[in-house]
Amino acid sequence: MPRQVDHDQRRRQIAEAVWRLATRGGLEDVTLRQVAAEAGVSARLLQYYFGTRDELLLGALEILNDDAEQRARERLAKLGEAPGMHAIVRGVLFELLPLDEERRSRHLVYAAYFVRFLTDPALAKVAQGAPRALENLVTGLLVQGQQSGQVPLNINAAAEAAFLVAGAEGMQSSVLLRQRSAEDAIAMIDHQLARIFTTTNSA
């Protein structure tokens, strides 16, 4: 068992090296040798854990996604034992925005992967399902809000979820480029949620 934990830690060490290189200069020209040097391991050990360059990029992305999901769960857990649906949806949408250093670094890595998403079928497959999965999650939360009286029944949950997710994702680049402040992005999300959560039980 301890041996497996060591393997996981080593894979994460290498993945974090990929992330650092991605945020500094993108991924188009990154080599296995550069990643090995950044991670402080031999190229042979890197290939043992991940194989080819493409497999390394895919593996590092999968670890990043797992890490993001875990951090999101931790932040949502801090909302308390029985948060209202408004707070839960708000928390989910905030995970799509670079609101602190951890999320900013993560979204910079995602930005570096973007060109690869367009040209690499394996990476594209990982990326393509993410927005729909988020839309389905937010749709389900809004439906629960309708069932509990926190969201009006005449709201189209699926349409609103698609709009909210697309809006939050659309603000990622402008916040990363500091064209828009994190506070402005939060205010825009809150404005849209106030339009949806119009009942007195939406806290």
Rank of each mutant, 00 (worst) to 15 (best):
Trp19Thr: 12
Ala158Asn: 07
Asp100Pro: 09
Ile14His: 07
Glu183Lys: 03
Ala111Met: 06
Glu183His: 07
Ile186Tyr: 02
Ile63Asp: 08
Ala17Ser: 01
Ala130Glu: 14
Ala60Gly: 14
Leu32Ser: 05
Leu97Ile: 01
Ala130Asp: 01
Arg11Cys: 12
Ala127Glu: 04
Ala187Phe: 05
Arg53Trp: 00
Pro121Ala: 09
Gly91Pro: 11
Ala68Tyr: 04
Leu176Asp: 09
Ser202Gln: 13
Ala36Gly: 06
Asp67Met: 06
Ala158His: 13
Asp29Gln: 15
Ala39Gln: 08
Asp184Ala: 13
Glu135Val: 03
Arg103Gly: 05
Ala158Cys: 08
Met188Gly: 04
Pro131Asn: 02
Leu164Pro: 09
Leu46Lys: 08
Ser148Val: 09
Ala17Asn: 10
Glu135Asn: 03
Gln146Glu: 00
Glu135Trp: 07
Pro83Asp: 00
Arg178Cys: 05
Arg180Cys: 15
Val151Cys: 03
Ser202Ile: 04
Pro2Cys: 11
Arg180Pro: 04
Glu95Thr: 15
Ala166Cys: 11
Gly84Trp: 15
Thr198Cys: 03
Ala82Trp: 13
Tyr113Ser: 03
Ser105Trp: 11
Ala15Ser: 01
Ala37Leu: 13
Ala72Gln: 13
Arg180Gln: 15
Asp67Leu: 00
His7Pro: 11
Thr119Val: 12
Leu164Thr: 04
Arg73Glu: 06
Gly140Gln: 06
Gln70Asp: 05
Ala166Val: 00
Leu93Trp: 03
His86Thr: 08
Gln70Ile: 04
Arg53Asn: 03
Phe163Arg: 04
Arg12Phe: 15
Ala111Trp: 10
Ile186Gly: 05
Gln13Cys: 05
Glu38Ala: 11
Ala194His: 09
Val18Asn: 00
His7Ala: 14
Leu79Phe: 06
Ile88Asn: 01
Glu38Val: 09
Ala185Ser: 03
Phe50Met: 08
Ala17Glu: 07
Ser148Gln: 10
Phe94Pro: 07
Leu123Met: 15
Glu101His: 14
Ser105Ala: 14
Gly145Asp: 05
Leu137Glu: 11
Leu76His: 00
Arg12Val: 12
Met1Ser: 04
Val143Phe: 09
Arg132Cys: 01
Ala161Met: 03
Arg71Cys: 06
Glu55Phe: 04
Ala159Pro: 06
Ala60Lys: 11
Gly167Trp: 09
Leu118Tyr: 03
Glu62Thr: 01
Glu62Tyr: 02
Gln144Trp: 10
Leu45Ala: 13
Asp29Glu: 15
Val41Trp: 00
Arg132His: 11
Leu97Ser: 10
Gln4Phe: 07
Val138His: 09
Gln144Pro: 08
Thr198Glu: 14
Tyr113Val: 07
Val143Gly: 07
Val115Glu: 14
Ile186Trp: 02
Asn136Met: 11
Phe114Ile: 10
Glu101Ser: 15
Leu58Cys: 12
Ala111Ile: 05
Leu97Asn: 08
Asn201Ser: 15
Ala111Ser: 05
Thr200Val: 15
Arg20Ile: 11
Val30Ala: 00
Ala130Leu: 14
Ala203His: 13
Glu135Gly: 08
Ala112Lys: 01
Arg195Cys: 10
Leu176Met: 12
Arg12Ser: 10
Gln179Tyr: 10
Ala72Met: 13
Leu108Pro: 05
Ala87Val: 05
Leu153Val: 11
Pro2Arg: 02
Arg20Glu: 15
Phe114Met: 14
Arg90Thr: 12
Leu153Pro: 07
Leu164Ala: 00
Gln150Arg: 02
